[in-house]
Design a protein around this nucleic acid. Structure first.
Lengths: 248, 248
DNA sequence: CGTGCAGTTGAGGCTAGTCAACATTAGTGG
DNA sequence: CCACTAATGTTGACTAGCCTCAACTGCACG
């Protein structure tokens, strides 16, 4: 509501998310949106936006669609280390490093915006709060990564899958992508297995257990959480790490 | 050698590490070192430098000693999500967020430097490469976190422990803390278990297996890697994520 | 109407967890 | 310096959670 002029804009998800991280001035929002709309690109499902070892030369922001970050061991075992959801950045600041340490692949058709390094840096220097928002984006990403480590290291299968569902739901909420108690969940069970460190078979059984207990339903790429509090309980979910609300 | 004037300084580890991330000018090094030496603090083993939920108001840099970042579930299960080693930052930029998502506890006596937010920001604006180095520090931290997710999700116990040993060794090397093929390793097996997502009993057996195969020895808080290449092989270790060497 | 991918089911085996006892080392106070 | 205690490391026996293999179903798509 406050930023009505962006309602309906393609850049809505990004603007919303960044405003949740740091309140942006109208002017900052406008310049940012401008930069986004001038760098629009599309990718089909299953495309790599970056592969391990690549050099990156700008920032990509996801406007719609899902991607995942993943790493693969020499013998083929794959771990999805995070999802990249609408409103989030693929690779802020990564051009400072030499190469990508992981790959980023689309799970669905994706609309994204690419801002080249030079322009990105100009944006950041001219709009201080935007720089802070990008920094927060990076820090929150880091916090999510730590929570994933905890999830993979210390939660059992049921808790682990439940936790992932809670997290995704809570990450989609602030960008306006949940509808009541459901959200889109365009990921195969194989992907989910690789995200939770389980085998596909065991993941399948775990999901069935969650379904049987009435906590969720998941069909036709839609996740419905029937009782969010109960799900959070089985997941030992504690939401603070997402930093969804601004400081003060 | 190149930065001889810092040899022997308490700040050596930090200066070395940051120089490996970004080459700093002599002037930048000097101002940075100055800020460090003015903020020196000490902590005994087992002290919390920050706890989940705390607000943070500056940056802490570790000059000597080990710490770990950890999260604890409501029922007491604990995951160490990373170590903080000499030369590394505890919490760069974290003051931008509202609260800590995890705790940081010393494993040994620690000497660290605290730079308050205002001074830190002044440092960054006056020394651009230092700002970039801090950014790299954050990004590398992020990459390490992703590797930990992969480790916890997709490697079996033996590989997982081997991987951790390789990583720590490689992280200590550039700050001058390895001596031939050994390094200090001041962590209990309980901590190691919490870092690798294993039970203490199973971790103990895994270490014995690594010892029996002649790959490592670990006693009196010293890790010796008898055959680094062989250890990396069993660990499926691929080092690029540490970004130890500068771009260009 | 096949072909291939995603999801599901069953059976059996192995990795890692739990519980419990014991050994060893480190730390503490007399 | 020794005696006591607590923390750490080690071992055995048993269990359970998760993995692997393999087959089969349902569905989308050419």
């Amino acid at each position: 509501m406050r930023i009505q002029y962006t309602e309906g804009s393609l850049a809505q998800a990004v603007i919303r998310r960044f405003n949740a991280l740091r309140p942006l001035s109208e002017e900052a929002t406008a310049t940012f949106e401008q930069a986004i709309l001038e760098g629009l690109l599309r990718a089909g499902p299953g495309e790599d936006l970056a592969a391990e070892g690549d050099r990156v030369d700008g920032v990509r922001l996801v406007l719609s669609g899902w991607l995942f970050r993943h790493k693969t061991l020499e013998d083929g075992r794959r771990q999805i280390v995070n999802f990249v959801l609408p409103g989030e950045a693929c690779d802020a600041y990564v051009y400072l490093l030499s190469t990508m340490d992981h790959s980023i692949t689309t799970a669905t058709p994706v609309v994204y915006a690419e801002i080249k390094k030079a322009r990105f840096e100009k944006l950041l220097t001219s709009e201080r709060t935007l720089a802070e928002a990008f920094m927060c984006e990076t820090l929150v990403n880091d916090a999510i990564q730590r929570e994933w480590a905890t999830n993979l290291g210390r939660r059992v299968a049921l808790e682990r899958v439940a936790h992932l569902f809670c997290e995704i739901y809570e990450r989609l909420r602030p960008v306006g992508l949940v509808d009541g108690n459901s959200c889109s969940f365009p990921v195969t069970q194989m992907d989910l297995a690789d995200a939770t460190g389980l085998s596909v078979v065991h993941l399948n059984r775990t999901i069935q257990e969650l379904r049987a207990s009435g906590l969720i339903s998941l069909r036709e790429r839609t996740l419905t959480i029937n009782d969010l509090d109960a799900l959070k309980n089985v997941a030992f979910y504690s939401p603070s790490y997402l930093q969804l609300y601004r400081r003060d």
